[in-house]
Amino acid sequence: MPILEGKGVTKYFGGLVAVSNVDFKVEQGEALGLIGPNGAGKTTLFNLISAALVPKPGTIRFKGENITGLKPYKICRMVVARTFQLVKVFADMPALSNVILGSYFGMSPGMSSKDAVREATELLEFVGLSAVKGTPAKDLTLANQKRLEVARALATNPELLLLDEMMAGLNPTEVGQAMELVTRIRDKGITIIMIEHVMKAIMNVCERIIVLHHGAKIAEGTPQEIVTSKKVIEVYLGEKAHAGS
């Protein structure tokens, strides 16, 4: 049974269709890449999966159970966690407290405070932030804030992790570290869906890629199939042709 399955997932903003009739399946343990030009509906699809938005029409199933219309905190406790395209850390809290919050509330029942502190400390070490655990989140670099978001998401003990442009705005060294981090998360057995514009990262990390364009799924396959797909090349080149005119 796929860990996550969407059928006919659609979302309109007023008259504009942001995600249009998208079917998708994610298998346990895989890393799925989600790509497409700006405005293709990638983040909207993430918002639909994490329940920030509700698809209308369409259904989303987690391990066969219909989770459409549940509240975000319920989805989170059902072991789906996410990060944000524009980082959303708890700015005035120390890095450690950011992660502890996930351990407290990300599963039911929540952890005792002793366990939460221990787990949060381990997770900060896992993402490489041990040295700054007492620093307020707002004083961290962008790369570190993104890692902090990953640690916070991991603290909710997810089986499925949604990573929204984790590499955007990072320098090449940081991209390399982030890719290495994603690989280590996968090795823990956590299923990953990632939105990414850094193609090197997508190609290296994901076994399968879905391409969105104008809200619709236009291609799906292995990285090799995607880079050689005529349709995908057309979409990307077409964008450029439009931009040039």
Partner: peptide
């Protein structure tokens, strides 16, 4: 822990909701 959660709402409500806070 509810004090921490209230703070998290004040600082980044969406992130709090997606971290499991009701």
């Amino acid at each position: 822990r509810f004090g921490l959660a209230l703070q998290s709402i004040g600082q980044e409500e969406d992130a709090a909701a997606h971290t499991g806070v009701n």
